[in-house]
């Protein structure tokens, strides 16, 4: 909440605030080869749900107070690609404290890659929220 007040202070009258963040959405882990995509399983990002609710609640308070007006909110897809499953697993281990990769998701991915010799990339696609709010 205090961060929003501080941002409001440094933005000029009628200035804008852009909110861009991944939504907790159980993103799919897929194997991609060109346009061909094979679904391996979901990633468990349910630990983000509470944080997301807290952020949304804080925003609703500033909207209700009239500090910012909600102008436009949308969603889009954002994909990240790794060259190998090992690279993905190691990156996830280092960067995701609170995101779980279910065992069967990794097993499915491994199975697909063992049965098909093409050089698949590992793809995780997040649903992103994007919102534009106006200082009032």
């Amino acid at each position: 909440m205090h961060a929003l007040e501080e941002v409001r202070r440094v933005v000029q009258k009628d200035g804008w605030l852009l909110d861009i963040r991944p939504m907790a959405s159980k993103p799919p882990l897929e194997l991609a080869f060109g346009d061909e995509i094979q679904f391996a399983g979901e990633i468990d990002d349910s630990a983000w749900v509470l944080d997301e609710e807290l952020v949304n609640d804080a925003l609703e308070i500033v909207f209700a107070r009239g500090d910012f007006l909600k102008e436009r909110v949308g969603r889009f897809k954002l994909s990240t690609y790794w060259d190998t499953l090992d690279e993905f697993a190691s990156w996830a281990d280092e960067n995701w404290d609170d995101v779980l990769i279910p065992e069967n998701t990794l097993e499915n991915a491994t199975k697909i890659m063992e049965q098909d010799e093409r050089k698949f990339k590992i793809r995780v696609t997040y649903t992103m929220l994007i919102g534009r709010y106006r200082k009032s």
């Binding site: 501080e6 852009l18 963040r21």
Partner: peptide, 22 residues
């Protein structure tokens, strides 16, 4: 800096982006 204490004067910017950081 932290978002809660920005080292700038009032009304310095036209817009702000919260980039994956709310």
């Amino acid at each position: 800096a932290k978002a809660e204490a920005l080292p700038f004067k009032d009304s310095t910017f036209d817009g702000a982006i919260f980039a994956w950081s709310f």
